[in-house]
Each structure stands twice: as C-alpha cells, then as structure tokens.
Amino acid sequence: MAEPQADMSDVAAEAAADFFNQIFGVIIEAICRFGRNLYNSFAEVSFGRWTKVIGSVIFYILIRPYIEKLFKWLYDRDRRKEKEKKEKEKAALNGKKAKKSANSLRAGETGKVLGEVETEDELEEGEENLALASGVPEWNKMARKRQKKYLKNLEKQNGKRAEDLSEEQVLELLDWSESENEEDKKKA
C-alpha cells in the first residue's frame, strides 16, 4: 500500500516540475523576444520608419496649440454654465439675502468664529477679511501676531502688579528684611 502513495507523490512532483519549467520557459522566451525586438527596432531602422517618426513629431508640434485651445474652451464652457446656474439661483431669490450668515450661526452667542482675530488694528485689511470670511484659522502670520499680543498683555499685567505694590510689600515678597542683612554682616 505504501507503493501507490509513493507513485502518486512522484507523479505529482513531476507534474509540478513540468508546470514550473513551462512557466519559466515562457518567461525566458518573452524576455528574449523583447530584447531581440528592442535591438532590431534601433539597429534595423529604415528610411520609411525615420520618416514616420519625424512626421509624427512635427504633426504633434503643429497640432498641440489647437489641442490646448480645445481644452481651454471646454473648461471655459463649464465655468460659464456654473456661472449662469448661480445667476439663475440669485434671480430666483430676487436679490434676497439670508438674515444670518453661516459664520454667525456657527459662532453662537459669543459672536466669535474659530480663527477670528481680536486685534483688528494689527491686521492688514486683506488678511482681516480673509480670516473673518473664511472662518478658518490662519496658522502663520496671524498666529504669531496673536502670540505677540498675548505676550504684550502678559507683560503689561506683570508691570501693573509691580507698580501697585509698595516697597515694603516687594521686600516682603522677596523675603528680605534689615534684620537678616545685619545677621549676614555679623557672620562675615
């Protein structure tokens, strides 16, 4: 009984080896043909073939501006259709505008939208309109300006606190007293 199984395994091994040999044979033949054809396409080039190549390049150079104009025309046509559609929608509303903008709805009671800047005097007119209209925070110049303003306010608050304190309170905060100074002199 052991022999039929051995025969079956030998048959299966031969079939698998034959299968993989055929696959590798096809792959090797394809690589050889590709290399041979590539070499022949450059080595055995006729005058007629060079004429076709040069003619194709010249034809492409001549027709390219017209192809670009075609795509530009298609793009402009789509833009025109969108613009007409928006104008029709405006005409349907008879120039009426919404009582509340989307930003005011998002802001809620606070009146501030994400990315809206408090300091209008530091922003240029264009940047201000961009930040207020889009509602999207600007993470470059505007963020640096907000940081500078925050630091200035922090310095002002610290300065006011120091001005409000008397000299005795400052010494008390620093934990200095004349008796300590005298003790230090005696130790030295």
Rank of each mutant, 00 (worst) to 15 (best):
M1G: 14
E3F: 04
P4L: 13
D7P: 00
M8G: 07
M8W: 14
M8R: 15
S9G: 03
D10C: 06
D10G: 15
V11F: 14
V11S: 01
A13F: 03
A16F: 14
F19M: 12
F19T: 11
N21P: 03
Q22D: 12
I28G: 13
A30M: 12
I31E: 14
I31D: 11
I31M: 11
R36W: 06
R36C: 04
N37Y: 00
L38N: 13
N40A: 01
S41D: 02
A43Y: 03
E44N: 10
V45T: 12
S46I: 04
F47P: 07
F47D: 06
W50Q: 10
K52S: 00
I54G: 00
G55F: 05
S56E: 11
V57R: 04
V57N: 00
I58Y: 10
P65T: 02
Y66W: 13
Y66F: 10
I67E: 05
E68H: 08
K69M: 13
L70K: 07
F71E: 08
F71G: 02
K72G: 08
L74I: 12
D76W: 14
D78K: 07
R79W: 12
E82R: 09
E82M: 02
K83C: 00
E84F: 01
E84H: 07
E87D: 14
E87Q: 02
K88D: 11
K88P: 07
A91I: 10
A92K: 15
L93W: 11
K97F: 15
K99P: 15
N103G: 13
S104L: 09
S104F: 08
A107V: 01
K112N: 11
K112E: 09
V113I: 11
E116W: 05
E118H: 10
E118I: 06
E118T: 05
T119M: 03
E120G: 04
D121S: 03
E125C: 05
G126L: 08
G126R: 06
E127V: 01
E127W: 08
N129G: 08
G135K: 06
E138T: 03
E138H: 07
E138V: 05
N140S: 05
N140G: 03
R144G: 09
K145V: 03
R146G: 05
Q147T: 08
K148R: 02
Y150N: 03
G159Y: 15
G159W: 15
K160P: 00
R161A: 06
R161L: 09
R161G: 00
L165A: 09
L165N: 06
L165M: 15
E168G: 11
Q169F: 08
E172D: 12
W176R: 07
S179R: 15
E180N: 13
E183A: 13
A188T: 10
